[in-house]
Amino acid sequence: MTDIAQHMVYAYAVLRPTPEAARAVAALRGVADEQVGLVETGDLAAAVGPVPAREFGEAALKARLEELPRLETLARGHHGVVAALAPLGAVLPLRLATVYRDEDRVRQMLQERRDEFLPLLERLTGHVEWGVKVYTDAGGETAAAAPEDDAGDSGLSPGRAYLAARRRRRRGAEDAWQAAVRTAARIADEAGEIAVERVAHRPQRGELAKAGGAEAGENIANDAYLVPADRAEDFRARVLAATEGQEGVRVEVTGPWAPYSFALPPAPVAHRESA
């Protein structure tokens, strides 16, 4: 081969080669706004798209992953394809930036991994992933307490009032933390009644975590649950019910997601446990 390949193949997900899957991908555009298609081999298929080699070669991809706006475009593009395929019932999302030289290499991969993909697809069929994040709700606490503080401290000097308020805030933060821990445990129990598996992600910290919600307290639990699809709403309702009446705690339920967090072999990579 004398010329350098113009395109590489970006792989999004592994799924079954059904007519529904073929129809679904036909309507999708991927991370490079390319037409997504299926590469099939026997009873497995991969959703893939041709992407420009100059943008998805080693160096270009590395650079892209280090720039947040471009990483975001890539991640949302990848997620968009996976999310659109998830309703088909069984889809194994691939990790971000899985790139092959050509479709033959994708076929080869499917054949090599067939014995692992099939049971995994079987296990995930008809299941969705829910995310459950538990936060301390320090912001809400302070805001709610403020008017009362002013009234209660009206007889104190400014200095004493300040100290009293600070003590209350600190106590409030400790209470919120304890409450959040208790709530997290209760949720895990409730969720475990319906979920078939759980994966604990790292708690979210930093700027990107704050971008999610201005009022965010500290994220103390960031779990993913694998839930039978027909009990998805049941799951959400139950989790939210478990958080009712809890002061100083905020719970966020995200999803339903494609089963990203469960598309791993029972291996040492993630902290897996039976729910």
Partner: peptide, 13 residues
């Protein structure tokens, strides 16, 4: 969280 910690990890090229 999901795309960098989850998802099937394959030996791409």
């Amino acid at each position: 969280d999901r795309l960098l910690q989850g998802g099937v990890v394959l030996a791409g090229d």
